[in-house]
């Protein structure tokens, strides 16, 4: 392991958890379960571009487990984990192709985070009708994904110097 990376893991993990907490303070004006900003993803995306995909993956895992245990409880953890892992896999793939900008990567992440959560929700309640929420969540994923992408891009400009 590269010891120079360790402080960054800690720093980014703490930031990501903090972002998740800040997000809980922000009321969502749309009464559809699952619609949210995804502020924590800003950190994950910054990490993906600032460091590397592998580091970002670990930080994402740490974030999901810690904020799951701290705020959401074990059932919430399952949803977060599914959303985070699916969204991460898609983002990593898109980034690897090199055909998409940071905003496109973030957008796909936002969309697939919601897809992952709905899938788990459908499995848990054993009702495929959960997919009824998908159109709304896809659109909200696109919007928040683009916003998060712009934030991450701006922040990266300052971090890289």
């Amino acid at each position: 392991m590269d010891y120079k990376k360790i402080p960054y893991y800690g720093l980014f993990a703490a930031l990501a958890i903090l972002m998740g907490y800040v997000e809980m303070m922000i009321p969502v004006p749309i009464p559809i379960p699952g619609v949210k900003l995804g502020l924590a993803n800003v950190i994950i995306i910054i990490m993906m571009y600032f460091m590397d995909t592998k580091s970002a993956f670990f930080v994402s895992l740490i974030r999901v487990f810690l904020s799951g245990l701290l705020f959401a409880g074990f059932a919430g953890l399952l949803y977060s984990l599914a959303g985070a892992m699916l969204s991460f896999a898609v983002m990593a793939l898109l980034k690897k192709t090199g055909k998409f900008s940071i905003i496109g990567v973030s957008l796909a992440g936002g969309v697939f985070h919601n897809v992952g959560q709905v899938t788990v929700a459908a499995l848990v309640v054993e009702n495929v009708k959960m997919a009824y929420y998908l159109p709304f969540l896809l659109v909200s994923g696109v919007v928040t994904g683009i916003l998060i992408g712009i934030v991450a891009k701006t922040a990266l400009g300052y971090i890289k110097r």
Binding site: S101, G104, L107, A108, A131, L134, L138, V142
Partner: peptide
């Protein structure tokens, strides 16, 4: 933003519209 990003937007919106139409 690249053109390919817009493609992603379009795909996501079409999927959303498709699922919505299917349900309605």
């Amino acid at each position: 933003m690249k053109k390919t990003d817009l493609l992603l937007v379009v795909i996501a919106l079409i999927a959303a519209a498709g699922i919505w139409l299917f349900y309605s």
